[in-house]
Design a protein around this nucleic acid. Structure first.
Lengths: 344, 344
DNA sequence: AATTGGCACTCAGGCAATCAGAGTGCTAAG
DNA sequence: CTTAGCACTCTGATTGCCTGAGTGCCAATT
């Protein structure tokens, strides 16, 4: 991104324009800028500046004789350099904290709650993703026989996250042998991160002389199945009805795309993961988010901590969103969430 | 519902009208009926009959000088008495069977697959619901310590379904005591259905003299939490993009309602449960479905068997749907599903 | 008595014309 | 460099008109 040098006036006008557009979702004209914002110059002057901004690719007109709309480039500049974050009111903070702490304590439900709160206070699409399971340190592994030829593999990681997966075994296995196998699995695997386990598991059980070799083989072969992140369960999406009240979704076409996006959870997971490389609040604007068809959308995300592992929460909405407010919301929510999940 | 006696001609015309409307989603006029269907009478005659049908509340006009549209009442009559089920082609059967048997064997994923297949072949919203957990007979209960002060409660029922729920314990519990407790829980509870357990659990552990009383108390208190059906996990919904291609969802209003419905999973679960009282394929038309705002929608559902327990699958779509085809699809899918889930 | 052709009537949807409003770019003057 | 003024452009709302589809009813026909 070419870091464009803007004169103070250009900056001022661009800022006002973005602000105005975010509020009204309508192309902004020179006259309106002149009257609503104390710029101290006449519409004509503003027009000249607007022309300059247009040449720089910072604004555009949907058609001649319409006002200007900011481009993604200028949203970027706005977020990085111009905007000042709007702190939350006490009331908003209270609402978030309350809704997050009330109710069940299971991590899964807390995450669902966060997602709902985010959507409600932001009127956007709320998203939350469980802590990256692969980063978790295995504390306990167990094999629980369920039914005739099924084993439930239970894996617990330090952050308190638990996953269980049913594994099919062809023949009935002796319970004692299962027990033994579980012991050896624990011995060799606990203390490692799940990611490490996935990478090295095949080597670690070359020399099996204890437990049931068949079972161990089955286990190593299905390790991926067990430890891989599962989009469907790890990702929460809520508040579709909220986001559809945004004017950009008047267009049925856009609405369709949104609906499609919501079912392509994998895509959302990827985008969130991409954003989660950085710590803290991250703003991903338009095409940066790589949400396929549905560009024109941005994400405001943040990581949170659950023990040693980190997860991601955030909101997705039209590029024209109140970044200043949303950043506060997401930031605060992630902090509360970290606190809740680490306290236990 | 007043069982209305219709003359052969009225029947013939109503049938043709419904057929035509299902195909084209447009009000059907007398002329079109006369030319497209071999009714052997002139448009004028048809008009007279249509007027009669209108008086009986079987058809209506969206406005004067428009053709007729069938009412929910007449869909009911159509489905119950007039329609003949359209058998599936070999190709369709093959597709369903293939997509259902390929891939992972875990029940959860099979259900998700069914849901997807249903949506794809029907171009409606596919739904599937896990077997009613409360009907399942408990075969095995286990308490697995995970982390410092957490226990994973694992409950397996005969159908192969497994559920695990994390339970918080305030103090660290001796592993041996946990083991003992698990044993006594198993002794007293296995063989019962989960429903029975929920109802009687408080009585069953009045006289605890074995295991950890504290733990047992905690368990009995959170039993509901453990055994209750969980909408979010037990219900699958897929193919929203498919259903939105139906012409009824051109109307953004309707689309909005659909979106809202999809997030109100509880409502869908209730409707499905209501339909699942009957065995086999059930057609629920319009307001019968009680889907709130979104009337104008019907469901075609069927139960399937997984061992002793039954679950529900089906499709949801606009009332104007091809019942004759959808009933075959849902019927066949549920049979295949039953076979898969019972074979194991 | 049922069926049919004819006819007047209604309504939605498409099309063109018109108009007001918002906004622009340019030019010339301050 | 800024601004007022002006001609120009484009959208969106409104209006009127017309066509096509469809009805309801009546009188003629079988």
């Amino acid at each position: 991104m070419p870091n464009i040098d803007l004169s103070p006036r250009e900056l001022q006008i661009l800022s006002a324009l973005i602000d105005c557009y975010i509020k009204n979702a309508e192309p902004v004209g020179s006259r309106r800028l002149a009257t609503k914002y104390k710029l101290g110059v006449s519409p004509a002057t503003i027009r000249n500046t607007l022309q300059d901004l247009e040449e720089m690719g910072l604004v555009y007109q949907p058609h001649t004789s319409a006002g200007r709309i900011p481009t993604e480039v200028s949203y970027r500049i706005y977020v990085d350099n111009m905007m000042q974050i709007r702190p939350l009111t006490k009331k908003e903070k209270a609402q978030i904290a309350r809704e997050l702490t009330s109710g069940n304590k299971a991590i899964d439900q807390i995450l669902e709650q966060s997602c709902r709160v985010l959507s409600e206070v932001s009127m956007q699409l709320g998203v939350s993703m469980a802590p990256r399971f692969t980063e978790g340190i295995l504390t306990h592994l167990d094999l629980v026989p369920v039914g005739e030829n099924r084993l439930l593999v239970v894996a617990a990681v330090k952050s308190g996250l638990v996953r269980s997966v049913v594994m099919e075994v062809d023949s009935v296995v002796n319970p004692k042998l299962i027990q033994e196998t579980a012991v050896i699995l624990n011995e060799r695997l606990s203390g490692l991160t799940l990611g490490q386990i996935m990478e090295t598991i095949h080597d670690r059980f070359r020399d099996v002389s204890y437990g049931d070799p068949k079972l161990i083989k089955l286990f190593t072969e299905s390790a991926e199945n067990i430890f891989m992140p599962q989009d469907d369960k790890d990702l929460h999406l809520m508040g579709t009805p909220n986001i559809t009240s945004q004017p950009e979704f008047r267009d049925p076409q856009k609405l369709q795309e949104l609906i499609s996006l919501i079912e392509e959870r994998q895509k959302i997971v990827s985008s969130l993961n991409a954003a989660a490389i950085n710590e803290g609040v991250v703003v991903t604007i338009g095409k940066e988010a790589n949400l396929g068809m549905l560009d024109g959308c941005s994400m405001v995300t943040s990581t949170y901590k659950a023990g040693k592992t980190t997860g991601t929460i955030g909101v997705i909405g039209p590029t024209r969103m109140e970044y200043s407010k949303l950043m506060s919301i997401v930031d605060y929510t992630s902090k509360v969430l970290s606190r809740i999940l680490s306290k236990e």
